[in-house]
Design a protein around this nucleic acid. Structure first.
Lengths: 209, 209
DNA sequence: ATGATGTTTAACCAAATGGTTTAACCAAAC
DNA sequence: GTTTGGTTAAACCATTTGGTTAAACATCAT
């Protein structure tokens, strides 16, 4: 009984995740979520009082899950460049299964930027620690003293953007699905190289000062 | 009279742009567009038969405008690195006025990827020419022989991502609006440097081969 | 058996929203 | 001065959609 109940809640959440991720809050229909979860609307509202609450739950779950994965990599004791590589792999892998995650998060926050503040507090995640850690590793491992935020955003950009803008890029450059998949696969090696090269440049800069 | 009419159509389009850009197709309300354009709903439908048509018009206009600006830079005769710099400036400037443009385009294409194919054909824009040009400049100016698509996507990523993900980044790293504005401003110089450094790395690679 | 919990069915409601219609108004063009 | 096209006001319609309700049923624990 409880087992089955838990199962239903999970099925609802999974369905809700799928629909919200793909269509956002406004595009999603409660009926669609119910159908996908193999239940009827009444039961859906029996588990989650309303659309907002369900959406919030999905948003929180999604963000926490992604944040945990990123945190694992960034706070580990790997050398910086291994982290960069790990990052390049994590994301395309993660989103091959959850391909709309990032888009979803960005849009949800565009609508209501205050959404994150609460859950970042509740969660024990502190993104600024990431930056400290990166800064320290930069100094210790490569002798570079620079703003870690720009560096981190650069990395995020290189990894995330091509996936988020995928349909745009595919249309503009007439890439078939296979070619696009190959392109994204190539980036797993291209990004670390690109990043590494850029870093070496900063080392040189430093020796000039 | 005609003058006034033209004026009304423009006002409608401007209002529609604003609302669609910020809220997307599903989030936008025809009444809101009418109100913003200072007309009533009847007149809105008198000018544009329905929501879809109006949206399509806005999408086409938006894409063409952005494509033209990008094309101007990429197809000019500037050296590659000046283009990179021009790019870093173009985008934040363009979107300080139209800050939801990219988000809007990405979402619209997520919904219906076929949207772009038609208008790219009609337009005399050929994005693949960009790539050829870049590839040639890479070879001639820097002696580098590599896939220009990755390079171009890298540049787009570095420039566009921080703006699109702005609310996400601001929340995560608790940046005030002023700090975030400063951060984006800094990137105008940081991106070219980063990019330049990475390029130098490829030159070295080549000399090793 | 009884009662609590999960579940379905199906009807229902209210509000929002895309879209239409009609009559009247106004300004300029003829 | 009449026609014409842009414009308004206001009512209206059909549909979608978020959300509710009530009755019946299944299952399991006690």
């Amino acid at each position: 009984m409880e087992n089955n109940a838990q199962n239903t809640e999970d099925r609802i959440l999974e369905a809700a995740r799928t629909v919200f991720h793909r269509k956002g809050f406004n595009g999603a229909r409660m009926q669609e979520i119910a159908t996908l979860a193999n239940i009827n609307k009444a039961l859906l509202y029996y588990y989650f009082r309303n659309k907002e609450l369900l959406f919030e739950r999905v948003f929180n779950d999604t963000f926490s899950q992604l944040a945990a994965k990123i945190g694992d990599i960034l706070m580990s004791d790997m050398p910086l460049m291994s982290k960069v590589e790990g990052f390049g792999n994590l994301y395309p892998n993660f989103i091959s299964e959850h391909s709309y995650v990032m888009q979803f998060l960005i849009n949800a926050l565009q609508d209501r930027p205050e959404r994150l503040r609460d859950i970042i507090m509740k969660q024990n995640i502190n993104p600024c620690l990431f930056l400290e850690k990166i800064k320290k590793q930069l100094r210790d491992e490569m002798g570079i003293d620079m703003d870690p935020l720009h560096l981190y955003v650069n990395l995020l950009a290189l990894v995330i953007f091509p996936v988020v803008a995928r349909p745009l890029l595919q249309s503009i450059f007439s890439l078939s699905d296979e070619k696009m998949a190959m392109f994204l696969e190539e980036r797993k090696t291209i990004i670390p190289v690109f990043f590494n090269n850029a870093m070496k440049g900063y080392e040189k800069d430093k020796s000039l000062v």
